[in-house]
């Protein structure tokens, strides 16, 4: 039961964040790339002012899987790094926190390019 509730919360919160993206896509001339940038920066901002953390605690992956969650991850990383390493943390924190995701995307990108051929829509 607990699991079902967690999944439902993730579904609803994640779904709603995506709908915000769809509203931007359908009602503005913003391209997906711009919307993605907006979401990440928004995530960093909401993370910094402490609004996003409770959302993550409530919805779990529903808040961390959307790109706002990636922004939140960067903001958490940088604030931790600043605490433990001071000034250098400003430079290291963000990318260190995002490193796993970025590295994974690069690795799989190269592997897919090695294995597959592009196809029509």
């Amino acid at each position: 039961m607990e699991i079902a509730i967690s999944l439902l919360k993730a579904f609803c919160v994640g779904g709603l964040i995506c709908v915000v993206g769809q509203i931007l896509l359908d009602y503005t001339k913003l391209t997906p790339a711009r919307i993605l940038v907006g979401f990440v920066v928004l995530g960093v901002f909401l993370g910094t002012i402490g609004i996003y953390k409770p959302v993550v605690e409530f919805a779990g992956a529903g808040a961390t899987v959307p790109l706002t969650g990636f922004g939140y991850l960067l903001s958490e990383g940088v604030s931790q790094a600043v605490k433990t390493q001071g000034l250098v943390g400003i430079l290291k924190g963000g990318l260190c926190a995002g490193a796993a995701g970025i590295s994974a995307a690069i690795l799989f990108g190269i592997l897919v390019a090695l294995i597959f051929k592009p196809k029509k829509k």
Partner: peptide, 8 residues
């Protein structure tokens, strides 16, 4: 965009 890029 690239062909495999998922855009609408």
């Amino acid at each position: 965009f690239p062909l495999e890029y998922g855009g609408q």
